[in-house]
Design a protein around this nucleic acid. Structure first.
Length: 367
DNA sequence: TCGCTACCTAA
DNA sequence: TAGGTAGCG
């Protein structure tokens, strides 16, 4: 039975103005959600801790949810995860007044929230994300759940098959994985990073250590703490801090943000250059000054818009004579964004058979 | 501090 | 070619 998601501030039902499912769940900040209805974008399924969570939009554009199996604390968990105590509508109005480009993006992309993810899951996810694309990141993380997570639910499908859902692995469980195990799962050179990072994390006190980083006052302290781990640089540290450690003012400056900055705010001044470390700080400061304390939240909408137009560029037909400008592409997002959504289809189809693959033990490469 | 390159893999 | 990082000169 689906329940209405209620705004804890206003006590009214949440609509997609405050929480747009597609723009929040599958826009590159988390990799544990699947779009179950890519034509309408009204049904999403994800794994949250030990629960499967389904979101659905009803005829009044309100968000409904259901957890499996039942969990009396799920409302609390979801409110925390979606940070529903943050008044996004108020913030977006403020950003729109400060920045014309944001105002334009807002017309296309509403309800982009920052998720408050589980820190360990977030950390591993973003180590995997480097030099990588969303479909493969999603696949890798699914593999990690299947091989090192706990089974949380087994669903009988109409066609007679079974779908098995797994939680994200604990530190102690992932600690069992050797570099070769992880390479076999398709992690590539990131396998070594994971092994090393998990080991160091265990020494520092495991998941509790990461959770405690939320208490640090300055966001940059969180980044510095994370950079101690192998495989985590500035960008990945900022992602983990913003998406799981309450560093709401941090801007992960990746290649897309770099391009937005150059194109929109610097008028192509650094167009063909590679980003330097100084520029990272410059861009971070620029957006922080522009948007304020919740700069990371604002950035996520700008980023999501860029991601969609980037996808559109890839997907747009090659017969097109005129090269479209980015801004015109922004307007086409609503129609063509569905192509992109198509790619993300059927990603949680978990099959227990793959679990066998990692059972073979290969010798760990020691440094 | 800066600039360069290798790194897994799949699209 | 890609939502980077480590390691090196």
């Amino acid at each position: 039975m689906m329940k209405l998601l209620i705004n804890p501030l206003t006590k009214k039902p949440i609509t997609q103005i405050e929480f747009n499912l597609k723009n929040t769940l599958v826009n590159g900040q988390a990799f544990n959600w699947v779009n179950k209805d890519t034509t309408h974008n009204k049904e999403f399924r994800g794994i949250l801790g030990k629960n499967i969570v389904d979101f659905k939009i009803n005829e009044k554009n309100e968000v409904m949810y259901k957890e499996t199996p039942e969990n009396s604390k799920i409302e609390e968990i979801i409110n925390d995860y979606l940070q529903l105590n943050v008044d996004l509508v108020k913030l977006t109005d403020e950003w729109s007044e400060k920045d014309d480009y944001y105002a334009k993006v807002k017309e296309q992309l509403k309800g982009v929230r920052i998720l408050r993810q589980f820190p360990f899951e977030c950390m591993i996810s973003f180590i995997c994300s480097q030099n990588n694309n969303i479909p493969r990141i999603t696949k890798i993380l699914k593999s990690l759940r299947q091989n090192y997570g706990e089974e949380i639910y087994r669903e009988k499908l109409e066609d007679g098959n079974e779908e098995v859902y797994y939680s994200f692995p604990s530190v102690t469980s992932l600690r069992q994985a050797t570099e070769q195990n992880l390479r076999d799962l398709g992690l590539g050179y990131r396998a070594n990073y994971i092994v090393s990072a998990v080991q160091l994390l265990e020494e520092k006190g495991g998941e509790e250590y990461l959770h405690n980083l939320r208490q640090l006052k300055d966001s940059h302290e969180k980044r510095e703490a994370l950079i101690q781990f192998k495989g985590i640089g500035n960008k990945v540290a900022d992602c983990i801090s913003l998406f799981s450690l309450d560093a709401k003012d941090l801007i992960p400056v990746d290649t897309h943000v770099f391009q937005i900055y150059n194109r929109v705010y610097k008028k192509n001044k650094n167009k063909d250059k590679k980003m330097t470390k100084d520029q990272y700080s410059e861009i971070e400061k620029f957006f922080k000054d522009l948007y304020g304390d919740y700069a990371g939240w604002a950035h996520q909408a700008i980023f999501a818009a860029e991601l969609v137009s980037f996808q559109t560029e890839i997907n747009s037909n090659e017969n097109s004579q005129v090269k479209k400008t980015k801004s015109s592409k922004l307007q086409e997002e609503q129609e063509e964004g569905q192509q992109e959504a198509e790619k993300e289809k059927s990603q949680i189809k978990e099959s227990a058979s793959i679990k066998e693959n990692s059972k073979r033990h290969t010798k760990n490469k020691k440094k």
